[in-house]
Every structure is written in C-alpha cells, then in structure tokens.
Nucleic acid binder design. Structure first.
Length: 564
DNA sequence: GCCGTTTTCGGCCCGACTGTTTTCAGTCG
C-alpha cells in the first residue's frame, strides 16, 4: 500500500505552494492528502477502478497527479516545485514558531537553507535585525531548533493516557477547579498523541493558569494568558490548557477535542444553517443558542451526539445528519480476554494470577495462550508441555469461581505457512491463535492464508505485525487476508499492546466492512498488561466496530460458537 | 484546486497569543 507515500507528497505540495504564497491551493492539497491518508482501501486499487475523483477533496487535477505517481513513480510538477525550492523546507518548517512567511524571509535575507544555517544565523545575532523578527524570536528559534532536531515522535497512547490522568487528578484537587477534561487526540484515543489539551472550568482562571504553569515537572512555559497557556514538561510532552466558562464548556470541548477536520465540517454545517460555531458556542445573530454541552451543540445542528473516537470527518457527519450513526462498542462490553501469557513461557505471573486479575474487570472467561516451541526466546511450549499445561489449567479452573479458564496457544506460523505444533495437539485446545513472529521479509500473505485454512486455527494474532514508530509490518495483501478470513471464519485480532494496536483503526474498519469478525485481546505478558484492553477497545471504536463485530463481547457459550 | 439545500463562480473555519508592533501579521491549534 502506497497511500502514505502519496499523502506525504500531497502534503509537501501544499507546503511548497504555501511557501510560494499561493492562496487556497494548499488547503485543497491538504484536504486531498487527508483523504488518502485515512483511506482504508489501497489507493492503487481506487485508481485502477477509475474512481479517484469520487474521493472527497480529489478532483481532476489531483487525481491526475496521483495517477501519474502510480504509473511512473513521479509527479513532474511536484519535482519541478521541489527543484525550484532552494532550501530544506521540511525541516525549517518543523521549527516551532517558523511558518512559511518567516522561513521565506530567512532565506531571502540571510540565505538560510537548513537547520545548520538557521542555527548559525541565530547564534551570530543576525536574525534579530530582520524586520518582523526580534531578540525573543531569535532566542526561541535557537531553542526550538534543538527540539526539532531531537523531537521524539508522537507519544504512544498507552503512555500518554496515564500521564494525562495524573495531571487531571492534580488539577481536580484544586478548590478553584470545577471540571477538568483532557480533550484533543487523547480523547479521540488516537494511537499516538502529539500533545495534551486540557480543558478546565473554574471560579478563578488566573489562579488555575498560575498553578498549571508552575507544576513541578514543567520545564518551559510556551505561552501564558489569562485563559490559555502551554507548557512543556521535562519528559518533552507539551500540554495546552484552557479555562472556559460553564456556559461554553460543551462548545469548547468540541473545539478542543477535534479533530480539526471534524470541527471544520461542523462549522460548515453551522454556516449552512446561518449559524456560527466557535469554541464559545453556537451563535445565531451573535446570540449563543448552544454551548453548555456537546449534546446541545450537536442537537441544534440537527444531529445526535458523536462519540469522540468517531470524530475524524470520515463519514460520521453525513450519517449523523441522517440520524444513522452506528452504535459502537462500549468500554464495558468485553466479557473475556482470549490472548495472554504466563510463567509457562517465561513470564512473571502464573495461571491463577492472570485469572484472578482478569476477574476484577468483570470478565466471565479468559484463555491462556502461551507461545509455542519455535519461539525459543519466549520459552515456547512443545506438544508435551501443552498437554501438561492442560491439566494444570483444569486444576486452577476448578479452584476458581466466577471465571472460566480456557486453554489455548499462540502458535507460530513458520516460513512455509506450517504451524509449529501438530494438529493432534491443536485440536484438543479450546482456542488456537496463530501468528507470525519471525521471518518478516517472506510472503506473509501466503503464510497467513495457509494458516487460516487449517481448521484448528481460530484467530490470527496481530495480523500486520507492525510496531508503532518502529517497524512497518509485513508486506501483506489485506484484501486477500480479509477474503480468506471471511471464507474460513477465522477471527482477526485487535491486539491491545500499546506498541501494536494491530489491526489498527483504519484496517479494522476495512475488515468489518469486508464482513470479518474481530476479537480484542491484550496479549498480556503480565497481570499489569491486562489493563491494556481499553486501548484495543479504543481502536475498535475508532473503527466503528459494533458489539456484534467483536466475538469476546459474547457470553462464553455464544463466543465458543463463533469459533471454527 | 475543489466544490455546491448561498451550485458552475466565488468562496474556502475561527480565534488566541506572541512579538514586534503603534494597529497587526504570523503562527498555532
């Protein structure tokens, strides 16, 4: 899939045009880029079907450019633009405080071509002398170069979530604070988070901002006003806080939660009704007619409440206006976790530990699925050990009340697509999960397809093998995978490990549209990691999964019937 | 460059904060 490649080029064209001072076209290219970026289908397939122009934001011109890229691997006009661009616009624009205007001036006046030039010019005190620049700007640039150079990528949701919860808690303890909500991409539960956006209502905004900017782990204050402030923590995370009135809380929460694209679409709906929407409310002739709650605003715009995880302007607005939004899976709908590891394959907790911890979540069942023998590094079990484990599981299951312990295994799909455990052993297990754990460069599609054809295999774990910000994943034909999953009744996993979240939101949505069934598992290697289930559920919600699309929302009997 | 319950031309979301300015442009979200 080259969707991300295409999207990146469209974004770059937007930047290039903006630097040239072209108006409005950058907006069009960015919109097209977003469409391609979040497309669940392969852009090449859309092209082959001749349907590029059906995509939102893609017209004749951009369609032609995409076609050119798919056919020739190049876009002439883009190459031309890039050739004429004398400086490294990507890295210069990544410096906080520098936008297209300032970057252009820096090149014209000081011949700044890259971050090193920029750093030199700043250190020599040349920048402060430029019109529109000053000493503070120069100092900020120097600091922000450092940040741009070592900028850690976005933070994993699984890491950001507990940090946000802790800061929320701290703010809640102030007596001046009434409400605190972390909005932004965290509230939408995106798999990675750029910064935290915290919304507050308070009897004394100044005091809250004062506390916020002087919290113990604040490293820098980026901005500070009476109602809005930004800080950077020592761990590099940026937090924006905003204090609003109770009467504006809903509209501010909407605005602050985003996505930007969702908000723009909402504002357009407002305009079509001769209304104006901003973070201060929904206005009719300058009179606020909604704003206290998000529900109010949506209602006055003629639609029901839209769950934050769906607010990406990927079709939710159209359905909402028709009152046809799906009811997506809830955070309390999961009744069991079907993928976890124990001390049998080298992890800290035993079967009973895992079961007892799982019971806290209200689960009715779990499945123990240790690794198998070809995964030596994980102390994978062989046939004999699996049979021995079966007896142990029966014993613990008998001992514990209120939760059923099933016996499974996460078997390895070898390079030839053959499983590393004999079928005679597999058929005695309650659940067989198959996954690729080695040889990522081979033909993963064929390997997985072959595994799915095995009647003992119920679930494919982490189907694409990607690790967020670290590994791209196997080269895989997802359409083929979905076809085969549907044909054989094999369940596809949403793996809740913070680094995996695999399938991801876009692919999970495509799988559902394909008619595949999903399971949300933690793949926990300790009791602690059982807590990650909420991350997987978040992915499912972002994929618009309904309860019925996910097999482990069912009672034990019904769930078992969904297996092969 | 795209798009249409303000339709094939004329718009394109809206507002806060900052720094460098004597009223605002640029950047950000």
């Amino acid at each position: 899939m080259r969707n991300l490649e295409v999207a990146k080029i469209l974004y770059e064209i937007a930047d290039l045009l903006e630097l040239k001072g072209v108006e409005f076209k950058p907006y069009a290219y960015r919109r097209a880029a977003q469409t391609v970026e979040s497309l669940s289908k392969d852009i090449e397939d859309v092209y082959k079907e001749g349907k590029l122009e059906d995509l939102p934001g893609i017209g004749k011109n951009i369609a032609q450019k995409i076609a050119e890229y798919i056919e020739t691997g190049k876009i002439k006009s883009y190459e031309g633009l890039k050739k004429k661009m004398p400086f490294d616009f990507e890295s210069l624009l990544s410096v906080g405080g520098l936008g297209p205007k300032k970057v252009s001036i820096l090149y014209k006046k000081l011949r700044v071509k890259n971050l090193n030039d920029l750093e030199k010019a700043a250190k020599l005190g040349k920048i402060r002398k430029l019109a529109g620049f000053g000493e503070k700007t120069e100092k900020d640039i120097l600091e922000n170069i450092g940040i741009a150079k070592m900028r850690n990528e976005r933070m994993l949701l699984g890491i950001a979530l507990p940090i946000a919860e802790e800061i929320e808690q701290r703010l809640k303890e102030l007596k001046e604070v009434r409400k605190v909500v972390t909005a932004g991409s965290l509230r939408r539960r995106k798999e990675t988070i750029g910064d935290l956006d915290i919304l507050i209502t308070s009897s004394n905004p100044t005091k809250v901002m004062e506390y916020f900017t002087t919290m113990p782990d604040v490293k820098d204050i980026i901005a500070k006003g009476p109602t809005k402030a930004s800080v950077r923590l020592k761990n590099g995370l940026q937090i924006d806080a905003r204090v609003v009135k109770d009467s504006e809380f809903g509209s501010a929460l909407l605005y602050f939660t985003g996505s930007k694209e969702h908000n723009i679409a909402l504002r357009k709906v407002a305009i079509s009704k001769k209304l104006k929407l901003s973070e201060y409310g929904l206005f009719k002739n300058n009179k606020q007619i909604a704003g206290k709650t998000e529900e109010d605003v949506y209602k006055k715009l003629g639609m029901p409440y839209i769950e934050p995880e769906m607010r990406e302007n990927l079709g939710e607005m159209e359905l909402a206006l028709k009152h046809a939004l799906p009811k997506i899976i809830g955070y309390n709908d999961i009744l069991g976790d079907l993928h976890m590891h124990t001390n049998w394959s080298g992890n800290p907790n035993n079967i009973e530990d895992m079961a007892l911890h799982a019971k806290h979540f209200g689960y009715k069942y779990i499945c123990i699925t240790d690794h198998t023998k070809s995964l030596a590094i994980e102390h994978g079990l062989n046939e004999k050990q699996i049979e021995k484990q079966a007896k142990e599981i029966k014993k613990v299951d008998k001992k514990l009340d209120g939760i059923k312990i099933l016996h499974g295994a996460e078997v390895n799909i070898n390079a030839d697509g053959i499983l590393d455990i004999r079928n005679e052993t597999l058929k005695n297990l309650d659940i067989v999960i198959a996954g690729i754990h080695s040889g990522f460069k081979g033909n993963a599609t064929e390997r997985i397809v072959k595994a799915m054809e095995n009647r003992n295999v119920d679930i494919i774990s982490h189907p694409t093998g990607r690790l967020i910000q670290y590994r791209k994943g196997y080269d895989i034909d997802l359409q083929k995978l979905f076809d085969k999953a549907k044909e054989t009744g094999t369940i596809l996993e949403i793996n809740s490990q913070p680094k995996r979240l695999d399938l991801n939101d876009i692919n999970a949505r495509a799988a559902i549209e394909h008619g595949c069934r999903l399971v949300i598992n933690t793949d926990a290697h300790s009791t602690e990691q059982l807590n990650n289930m909420r991350l997987g559920i978040a992915v499912a919600r972002r994929a618009w999964a309904k309860k019925k699309d996910v097999i482990n929302t069912n009672s034990l009997d019904k769930m078992l019937k969904r297996l092969k």
